[in-house]
Design a protein around this nucleic acid. Sequence first.
DNA 1: ATGAAAGCGCTAACAA
DNA 2: TTGTTAGCGCTTTCAT
Lengths: 341, 341
Amino acid sequence: MAKQSITSQDVAEKAGVSQSAVSRVFTPGASVSKQMESKVRKAATELGYRPNILARSLIKGHSKMIGLVVAYLENQFYPDALEKLSMALQEKGYHVLIFLASRQAGNIDQVLEEILDYQADGLIMASAAMSSSLAERCHEAGVPIVLFNRSHEDERLSAITSDNMAGGRKLAEFLVAGGHQRIGYIAGWEGASTQRDREQGFLAGLKVAGQTLYRREVGDYDFEQAKAATRRMFSGKKEQFPDAVFAANDHMAFAVLETLRFELGLQIPADVSVVGYDNVPLAAWPSYDLTTVSQPSKQMVAETVAILMSQIEEGTVSPRCVALEGPLVIRGSARKPEAIR
Amino acid sequence: MAKQSITSQDVAEKAGVSQSAVSRVFTPGASVSKQMESKVRKAATELGYRPNILARSLIKGHSKMIGLVVAYLENQFYPDALEKLSMALQEKGYHVLIFLASRQAGNIDQVLEEILDYQADGLIMASAAMSSSLAERCHEAGVPIVLFNRSHEDERLSAITSDNMAGGRKLAEFLVAGGHQRIGYIAGWEGASTQRDREQGFLAGLKVAGQTLYRREVGDYDFEQAKAATRRMFSGKKEQFPDAVFAANDHMAFAVLETLRFELGLQIPADVSVVGYDNVPLAAWPSYDLTTVSQPSKQMVAETVAILMSQIEEGTVSPRCVALEGPLVIRGSARKPEAIR
DNA sequence: ATGAAAGCGCTAACAA
DNA sequence: TTGTTAGCGCTTTCAT
């Protein structure tokens, strides 16, 4: 087994030129003559030579790798985002060093350090929190960080989200317009900015209509916990059940729907309306047909990559926070305003 | 912005020792005295020093990075596997450099080369095909490859799958025992070994019972295509509809269920039984309640990592092919044998 | 146990 | 345009 890889030196000898000539041929924008180019390339392909990126990175001071931290892959929003992010970065010549954060995020900082040890040029945090001391460290090391689908009070961090407040408000307005009077809310993980903002917007929307939250339970953005939350919310007298539920994301909304239909035997939306947030692919499947707010993930990814690139390439460390508005997607899981005319 | 990172030289100066002493402190298993250790560590933490892994990799000849190629993240089997794989590798001190293969897999080889340029110590191919010339290249470079959920005829490649033939057979036996007479099959992507093996096992199972396939359509492991395949399969006279369908994976089975219920108004399993393969989380949700074969993803991941580690660390390049058997998970989407007694 | 010195494979001045 | 030389930050002989 020939573990030894081919070096530029090998190519140089074969082509009868200097080692640096070989380097130049593989360095975009270096000055090489036509014949040198072809001579070297010939030798290189014959030997199967490819430059060692690690050595290049060591000199250039950048690795063309982006660290990506992501959790909750069960929530289909994230695999989808991961795919888009990875594709977009690849197009820019970057590659993704991934870390899956587990639920008990104790080890996150440690692994982030490891990612930094690999000289990652930037960091994307899709969900998951990091300590502000680490944020400090990254800042000092000149490694830009952008939060994806999370906002943060820290001045040094860029953050891309959808406009969760506006989205929450739209949902409230829609439910109110649909004639709902007893509106419940299944909260996500309380530590998440998405949870906070969606709820805040939702409450504001209700308030404008002179309503308040009828019931509230916490589902922690988790499927099983959302089922439990639903059971709690729909306990007691049937007449006092909520007539509408907003689950802070689609993933939980599915749990709500499953529980309502199959455990409590309720009709959707005749007995109770359900709305979610994210517009994951599943939301469009007829079984769920979920009314929800669409996260503009394509734009979110584009913004994320753009900010990262500008911070890396221009050395700009002026953090930007962007909240992209996403449309309300009206489907069949909630009674519509027209229906009550 | 202090883009300059702290080097072992900086630490050495601060601690008043040689640079190589610093290196030894951070090299597990090197001989350093207690006082040297503490002196260096003190200076290191004060400066916030961490070794540059790229430089280390350049010397050691390995990067502690594993390249991972994955596609079809909509099929929840893969996010789940990705998570497990990443976790398991992390525990071994490896990190994952990921590449999302797009459907039009033309560029796969190119990106694989890029991953190799990063001196990845090994490669995991979860789905997606690679040219045999590239496999050759990896072999020559001494980079072990293991196929995850795909088998391959190439001698040089290790491959971990579930026992797709056995799984297909179990499903056939189950449907036959359930009294079904007109059994249809929605095939996955014809280029995939999983598709081939599941179908082969399924056909063998039918044959034992004296049956043959009633209808067959191709769904390419894609949701929309599986819907179209279902429409084709259930066209014509209602009396001639299949009474059972095996979709080559759960992802397509969901499409079948949606189409049958909401477009054709059929009852499951009263009018037609549906079974899938993978046992993704969604299969357990009451809306689908899908009878399926479970892929033992935990064991598959463990085997994959074990093989990779042994090939990397021992330099063994004796490819192993493993097919792990997974149980039939009986739920409500298919008529059960008891029901016809 | 420690320091000096020689590279790992490459890029980037510097000459020529 | 090309070759020569000096490193990038680290590990690893080799002396001491």
